[in-house]
Amino acid sequence: MTFHKHHLFWPFAVFVLLLVLNIFFSNNFFSITVHDGHLYGSLIDIARRAAPLILVGVGMTLVIATGGIDLSVGSVMAVSGALSCLLIGDLGDPDGVAGVLGAIAVALLLCLGLGVWNGFLVSVIGIQPIVATLILMVAGRGLAQLITGGQILNVTSAPYRVIGAGYFLALPVSVLIAVAVAIVAGLLTRRTALGLLLQSVGGSPAASRLAGIQARGLTWLVYVIAAVCAGIAGLIYSSNVASADSNAAGNLIELDAILAVVIGGTALTGGRFSLSGTVLGAVLIETLNVTILSVGIPVEATLLFKAVVVVVLCLGQSPAFRERVLRRRTPVVATKEVAA
């Protein structure tokens, strides 16, 4: 019973259900093969696909913990990919490691700047987060297109390709990066007091201020972290497809990221948050995408299927739903309706 009450019970149950479903439709779903010293298999594939979403989700979790939201992550991904591809394309030797690292650094620096901008609007000027980040969400893709001149920039650079499609110790580099960032974020919030203070600021801003917490810096920081995380995700995405596509990169990822956060048990109103929950949420979403393919549901129905899963998950997590429907306490419902 106590396990049943754990905040990750429902997402985990759906995750397991999806995996089981996959077994019936693709026989060697769980088989992981070694090929050229690299691991291959459906599970690895899910992890690879989930990497950008995990990265964006981790940043989003911290933002949401403060009671905010960051709609601009998709645009930031596009900007990051666009700038790195542009710079690498301009390099004399696109295969030079130093040049590529430099390009990546510059791209991430720009993302950091965008995060500073978002954080400034929210924490200093005091604009509602959803509105403040809406600005960059709209303008960011324009900025990315400005950088690429409205074209899709193709790059052929072996070192750059490693980020999104390479392997290290038989594991995909992108997955390693995502896991590393998630772990760093976990340590940052657990081993320092960042987690406690973020929860306090998100849970009750007025009380936090009077307790001496200076929320401005904290709030600012989380938007910077979110933008840098999105920037890294953008690099992985563009490296994987070996090009910068300002329209496709990170399209609608903000919604998936928010979804991952909520599936992971973090309330959109701020306060208590769960990074592990977000990672599970991100993996769950990608498992769903893969399942849709392997089960043979037409691609057109992907969104439909996603909607169903979202509904099931949210209802499963809703205490009100459990109370009303699963326990069948009819008198309450009946009298409520009479009252209304």
Partner: peptide, 10 residues
């Protein structure tokens, strides 16, 4: 150009 529209709107 079209992308300027987005930037200006932003």
């Amino acid at each position: 150009s079209s992308w300027w529209t987005r930037i200006v709107v932003g």
